[in-house]
Structure formats: C-alpha cells, structure tokens
Design a protein around this nucleic acid. Structure first.
Lengths: 120, 120
DNA sequence: CCCTTCTTCAACCATTTGGTTGACAAGACG
DNA sequence: CGTCTTGTCAACCAAATGGTTGAAGAAGGG
C-alpha cells in the first residue's frame, strides 16, 4: 500500500480511530468492548481496527472467541521523530531570520540621533 | 469538513505533501518552485497545497503573479501534543505492568526446589 | 494593449474510504 | 450434538481523494 509513516498518519486522521487509540493506552480491549461507545456497526469498528493494525499501531492476539486488541505505542515515535525533525528545522530558520532582522535593525541606525527607544 | 487535528494528520499522510512541508522548513517557495521535483501536474501540486492550507500548515501571500507558500510550523505542535499525551499514558501503563510482573515473579518462587533453570 | 508568466478553477475519471447488511468461522457451554 | 457469543469476510454503496486536461484569472513587461 504505502510506507508505514503514511499509514500511521492516515490511521490517526480519523477521530474514531484516535479515540480508540486513546482508550487503548489505558488498557487492552476486545473488539465489542471497543465498539460500544460508537454509533456504528461492529463491522465498521473491525475495519477501523484493521487500519490501525496495518499501520502497526495495534496487534490482536486470540483468547477464546475474543480477540484482545493491544496498543503498540512505539510506532508513535515514528511520527514524533518526523514531526520534531522538521519543527526543529523550522524553528532554527526562524531563529536565523530573527538574527537577520536584528542585523537589519542595527544597519538602520547609522545615525546616533536615536538610541534604544525603538519601543513601538 | 473535519476537526483541525484530523485535517493535519490527513495532510501529512501523503508522502508528497510531507516532502513539501520538509522543503518549506528550509525556505518559502512559490508553487511552481515546489512542484518542480514531482512528476505530477502543477494543478495537482496546487491541490496538495490547498490541503495543507486547509489544515493550517501553510499560508499563501501574494507577490506579483507569484504566491509564496509559507510554513506555519506551530500547527505541528497540535499533533505532538496529542501523540505525546497518549504515548506517555501508554508508557505509564507499561511501567505499572512491569511492577505487576515483578510482583508476580516474587510470588512465583515460594518453593526453593527449582531456581533459574526454567529454560525449556 | 497584448503577451507571457504563474497560478487556480472546473469538469472529469479511477481508486480509496467508511459505512451498511448478510453470511460465515471459531470457540465456549449446555 | 446444537446454540450462543464474538468477530471477520463479502458485496455493495456514497462520498472523498488524487490525478488528469482545458480554460481562465491576475499581475508584470514589452
């Protein structure tokens, strides 16, 4: 299908799936258990779980007729790493821009007629 | 459409859009500029930009016929906050589970008849 | 003014997505 | 064994997504 990072982002782009993930941080749940709060069929929830599973966000084991769903939280790191990498880059760039602006400001005061009083 | 968090996740679920965002951390770009590396029409890139804009990830100003695209990196914090919140919860739960396991291990050695050699 | 440049709008198309219902599979349990 | 519980598979459907092409808008430069 697509790379895992894309699948993880896509999986969490749905509020229902995000809520499931949120609830799974507290405890493992069975499918019916998970489905209870939502106003959709059990099959729809089953599909959502498949999306989360394909993204590597959850795993399902077998326990009698039940299939407990377990969160694999490490996958979240994939996203955090990507996001933080570029957020940091953007910040650095803004910092650099601030430097340039400061420089420009300095250049703008060749005349000692005005000092410090640049408060708007 | 949907809530912003969903739109941001969805926007970044596409590799092309993620690459655009990555490039925009370095500098602002015009549409044609952004489109250059990709093997799709300019119109397709324009659509991708609309998705990013609707998610609040970029803004476009006007500069002659060009429309420079600027990254709004703060929006990334929305995601980071969500992710970190639940990752932390999951971690706390695992830590608690580790405690339980340690407890069980303690309880499991009431008989000194067998130690360590539990390798199958 | 016209023309060229940069970009978007509109219509169209194939695929994916998120939902539905109905049938079936896997175990527990009487 | 039959049957109830739990969950998935299959087929179907409407809407959204990501791409295309063609036409049009907006601003600068002869």
């Amino acid at each position: 299908m697509a790379d895992q990072l894309s699948r993880v982002f896509a999986a969490l782009a749905d509020p229902t799936r995000r809520d499931m993930v949120a609830r799974l941080t507290e405890a493992d749940h069975t499918v019916g258990d998970l489905a209870a709060p939502y106003d959709v069929s059990l099959q729809a929830v089953s599909k959502h779980l498949k999306v989360l599973e394909d993204a590597g966000l959850v795993t399902r084991t077998r326990e009698a007729q039940r299939r407990p769903v377990h969160l694999e939280a490490e996958v979240l790191d994939l996203m955090t790493k990507w996001i933080e990498r570029y957020r940091r880059r953007a910040e650095e760039r803004f910092a650099a821009l601030d430097g340039v602006l400061a420089q420009m400001q300095d250049d703008e005061q060749p005349h000692p007629t005005q000092q410090e009083g640049t408060a708007s």
